Computed example of a mutant assay.
Amino acid sequence: MQPSGFDGVSICGGVEVPYRRQAPAGTTGDLLAQAYIAALEQSGFAPREVDGLGVASFTLAPDHAIDVAWRLGLSPRWCMDDCHGGASALNLLQHAARAIQCGDANVIVLVSGDRFEPADFRQLVDHYNLTTRTWLRPLESGGPNALFAMHTQQHMQRHGLTRADYGALCCAQREWASRNPQAVYRSPLTLDDYLDAPLIADPLGRFDCVPVVSGANAVVLARADLVKERQRAVAIRALRCGYNPDHQQGDGLQTSLGTLAPALWRDAATTPEAMDLVSVYDDYPVMVLVQLADLGFAPDGDLRALIARIASGALPVNTSGGQLSAGQAGAAGGMHGLVEAITQLRGAAGERQVANARRALVSGYGMVEYCYGMCANAVVLEATEGAPQ
């Protein structure tokens, strides 16, 4: 493998507390603790070896990362809260990896998740940020569906797409979900089912809108020389974070991924064509296509050809079923795709395992302002030698 800017750091665990449509008993903190315990068990590290903790959650308040550390019995040398929504996981990953390289910590666990009662989600939608609370809540817009319906309309017109084109993505992800025992929605989804579903905000139908669930995820990073011999580790080949430079004055059909992609692929010494699978943040199908285009997966601009590759399985995208079928557990949504990529690269994805998976691209996208997400990021991961395939 070529050296990278993240040498000396390994990812040695990635888990998901099964998502649920109905909020389980307990608190968000309980879900994060379950994910922490499961991730440590997978990584082989003991609690006493953990000296770093990162947390992303919308419903943990009034607690913070340090409260979670205290409840877990940790005395971390590195501790971080993150509030970047769907971009949180990769933001945490970048900071945690750098902390390990700098000697601030040796073993860091990153956890993310939320427990939603109906009132919790309404509170989040109405008070997502000051802009939402001040300008959108009085309109009773009902959250991001209306905003991304407008994006989808623009995207359809620009690229000559139809609802069926977006539906092909949803159906392909549902096919992957049918092989994932932890996906919340696993029943078959045909294109007719998709097109016949009730409209939520034209042209978005029921299956275009990410379903809200409760759950949590966790990832373990460690100094590479400390990784347990029996563990299958994953290396970070490149990671870049970006923030939209147009101050919400553009149309939202290009993310900051378009700006950072050249440096990402240069850092990783590889190309989009070399990726064995992709986990792209999928709150809406339109954003799957926007991010993939920004990252260079449609260099000729032919989105229909890209959709055909995804639908046929030639390009494995969101092999867990993605959030559109597995569910979006609040801030855990940004870590869901990361955990899936880690699971695939460790050869542990069971029936949905991508054969000979060695390299994966994961993207994050989050924090909707007036009309679209303010930040996006991406990481290229690679299985280390010895990972079974």
Rank of each mutant, 00 (worst) to 15 (best):
T270W: 12
T270K: 12
T271N: 10
E273P: 00
A274Q: 15
A274F: 05
A274D: 14
M275C: 14
D276A: 14
D276R: 01
L277A: 11
V278P: 08
V278H: 05
S279N: 09
Y281N: 05
Y281P: 08
D282E: 09
D282H: 03
D283I: 15
Y284G: 05
Y284Q: 05
Y284C: 06
Y284A: 03
P285Q: 11
M287D: 11
V288R: 00
V288S: 01
L289N: 06
L289Q: 10
V290D: 13
V290F: 10
L292S: 04
L292T: 08
A293N: 11
A293D: 10
A293T: 14
D294Y: 05
L295R: 03
G296S: 06
F297P: 03
F297T: 02
A298F: 06
P299G: 02
P299E: 06
P299I: 04
D300N: 13
D300E: 13
D300I: 05
D300R: 00
G301R: 01
D302S: 03
D302F: 04
R304Q: 10
R304N: 06
R304T: 11
A305E: 07
A305T: 04
L306H: 04
I307F: 02
I307Y: 03
A308E: 13
R309A: 09
I310T: 00
I310L: 04
I310E: 05
I310K: 00
S312C: 03
G313A: 06
A314N: 01
A314P: 03
L315A: 09
L315V: 11
L315D: 06
T319Q: 04
S320R: 01
S320W: 01
G322N: 00
L324C: 02
L324H: 00
A326R: 14
G327L: 02
G327V: 01
Q328E: 12
A329W: 07
A329N: 04
A329H: 05
G330L: 07
G330Q: 09
A332N: 04
G334I: 05
G334D: 01
G334N: 02
M335S: 12
H336I: 00
H336M: 06
H336P: 03
G337V: 02
V339T: 07
E340V: 02
E340N: 12
E340S: 10
E340R: 02
A341E: 09
A341D: 11
I342C: 12
T343Y: 07
T343H: 07
T343W: 03
Q344W: 06
L345R: 02
L345M: 10
R346G: 11
R346M: 09
A349P: 12
A349Y: 07
G350W: 07
G350D: 09
G350V: 06
R352G: 14
V354R: 03
V354T: 14
A355S: 12
N356A: 14
R358I: 08
R359T: 15
R359P: 04
A360M: 13
A360P: 14
A360L: 06
A360Y: 10
L361Y: 03
L361C: 04
V362C: 13
V362D: 08
S363I: 11
S363A: 06
S363C: 09
S363T: 15
G364M: 12
G364L: 13
G364Y: 09
Y365V: 06
Y365N: 15
M367I: 10
M367A: 12
V368G: 09
V368E: 11
E369H: 12
E369L: 15
Y370C: 10
Y370R: 14
C371L: 14
C371I: 11
M374C: 15
C375M: 13
